[in-house]
Design a protein around this nucleic acid. Sequence first.
DNA 1: AAATTCTCCTGAAGGC
DNA 2: TGCCTTCAGGAGAATT
Length: 270
Amino acid sequence: MPELPEVEITRRGITPTVTGSTITGVVVRNPNLRWPVPGELQALLNGKTVRRVLRRAKYLLFDIDQGWLILHLGMSGSLRLTDTQVPPQKHDHFDLVFGTKILRLRDPRRFGAVLWTTEDIYTHPLLAHLGVEPLSPEFSGEVLYRASRGRTAAVKQLLMDHTVVVGVGNIYANESLYRAGIDPRTIAGRISRVRFGRLATEVRLTIEAAIKAGGSSLRDFVHSDGSSGYFQQQYFVYGRTGQACRVCGRPVKVVRLGQRSTFYCSQCQH
DNA sequence: AAATTCTCCTGAAGGC
DNA sequence: TGCCTTCAGGAGAATT
């Protein structure tokens, strides 16, 4: 599923083709995504030019004359660049057409979103209350520490709280906590500054490494037809229930935390 | 007010 | 082989 690294790689992949290009058509095959795709998009966007593509959290933001196209990939969404000759497939719900080229959204589970706003993008309801970007200089253990005081929820849930830090989904929360040696069930409010410092470092390193790995495996992004480009990484704990910890060899355990599968090593994480 | 639960959806995986 | 059931999960919304 797309986490922040996949979204960022997607952004980088489409930027060269999309930036400066003029929209010549919009196709909405199925408007029933997370929220209805606005029916008037065709009229709104036709003839307009994409100035740039930004990312905030897992949202892709297309800066278009007088407004913003907001796109989220949800659980199963992917974007690919293709051309008008390629027939859409079953779950290809949305096209942004640039002459003979098409930016096409595929999303089997339809948890994604395509929205339009003319507001100031950073005060938009979806973005206004988001926390810091994990790759920005503002992100540090201090951010986590301050947010954690008085909180009795598990540290993993704090890490996945998007009003604190954005873009840390289930996979990277599990992996970062493993790398920081912290038990995901630990009460957030009882973790020290020092340990949060280590955790922030591991969050950043894990995400950076994933972007690097994904970027190098996505050279053909522009002509990706089927393999939209998500990359499989080697995880320490995620999805490895019962398998040997890569460090100590003990079986990886799984528990439910906040309705989410949580993987950890009882030897390496405290 | 923080914490928890619910909800959307379909492909994959597991059971028999 | 095939049908049926269960599960996963991003994140906003609704509850507690």
